[in-house]
């Protein structure tokens, strides 16, 4: 057992983090929210060059995946910098198409879309109608995939944007489209895609929480009241300590879920659900601490912190509400016969 990141994974995380720090993501987020996706798409291309999307695409379609642990590493970094766009949905679509291609070698969609996803040319979005009627960033995505029961559609259009509480998350209902695939293989692939999405969302939430904690610790060290740094007060310290505890114990669940993702679907479902609810709760704990400890300035839109605080709330319900996730954790292990049928 080696349950920790290796040197290469750490270097990948550090390289992404350095690139995203230099990119100055708050301005990119604000442009994206205002309906100008150009800076976001430029960053998207650089993320593709760094290999982020290739992690979800198999080699024969131009990627080097699937590599779930590295996917988690990259989404923690993306969350840390609150990068906008249908990142989760693009890698979930890649997971979906990869599985469909594996189930049916004559399927056309994987060869059509996966190379573009790996190279960064294609930003895809995806929604599963059983989970949500909205597709993230459907107004600007190059492909809008819809999972409806046992069918995969590609929507030709999207409805008007319904602003999210996180203004960088542009939600819209997909319009009518054409059926790309249908049947049990779609159902199985859809489950895997949804788990991939939940895992990537959880990783994003963890990164978001880490960034919120760091920003708040920095604030608590420099902000003085009553003649001393507010970070010297126990009321402040303990809140931040609890935030760190929540983040530290969510992280191993994330990597365990990444390791479980390719395997038995029922086990993967439980592991991903545990990671999703824990990481999202930790991010929300961090967001509340950040808001409270920054005081009134934390409650302003002007401070970039707002971009992180608002996203934490939205990730909590995206791709699996807390109640859904907790119910999944307790779902009993299926009988062996059921288990082999699911494979």
């Amino acid at each position: 057992m080696h349950f920790r990141l290796d040197d290469e994974q750490r270097q990948f995380a550090a390289a992404l983090d350095g690139m995203l720090t230099a990119a100055g993501t708050p301005a990119v987020v604000r442009a994206w929210a205002a309906g100008d996706p150009a800076p976001g798409r430029a960053l998207w291309t650089r993320l593709a060059e760094a290999g982020v999307f290739g992690l979800a695409v198999p080699e024969r379609h131009g990627g080097f995946g699937p590599l779930p642990a590295e996917l988690v590493v990259s989404f923690v970094a993306l969350g840390r910098h609150a990068v906008p766009g249908p990142l989760v949905e693009t890698v979930a679509a890649a997971a979906l198409l990869d599985r469909l291609g594996a189930a049916d070698e004559h399927a056309e969609a994987p060869g059509v879309w996966l190379p573009g996803i790996a190279s960064g040319k294609t930003a895809a979005t995806l929604c599963r109608t059983a989970d949500s009627p909205y597709a993230l960033d459907a107004d600007t995505a190059d492909a809008v995939f819809v999972l409806d029961d046992d069918a995969l559609h590609r929507a030709e259009s999207a409805g008007p944007v319904q602003p999210s509480a996180d203004s960088a998350r542009r939600l819209a209902r997909p319009g009518p489209g054409t059926v790309l695939a249908q049947g049990p293989a779609v159902v199985a692939a859809a489950g895997h895609a949804a788990r991939t999405a939940a895992l990537a969302t959880a990783a994003q939430a963890l990164g978001l929480g880490r960034a919120l904690l760091e920003a708040t610790v920095a604030h608590a060290r420099q902000r003085t009241q009553f003649g001393v740094a507010i970070g010297s007060f126990q009321a402040v310290k303990h809140r931040l300590a609890d935030t760190l505890v929540a983040l530290e114990f969510a992280e191993p669940l994330l990597y365990a879920a990444a390791l479980a993702l390719p395997g038995d679907p029922a086990e993967a479902e439980r592991a991903v659900a545990a990671a999703k609810v824990s990481a999202c709760e930790a991010a929300c704990t961090a967001a509340r601490a950040a808001l409270r400890i920054h005081g009134a300035v934390g409650y302003t839109e002007e401070l970039d912190l707002s971009l992180w605080i608002r996203k934490a709330r939205c990730l909590r319900t995206a791709w699996g509400t807390p109640a859904d996730c907790r119910a999944r954790v307790l779902r009993p292990a299926p009988a062996p016969s059921e288990r082999s049928a699911a494979r």
Binding site: M1, R4, F249, P252, L253, R326, V329
Partner: peptide, 26 residues
Amino acid sequence: LRDRVADAVIGARAYQLFGYASATGA
């Protein structure tokens, strides 16, 4: 109650995994 049971199961698993990480080099 289900949510609280789930949280206990998740918490125990998180602590177990944290222990594995500590035991293998963190």
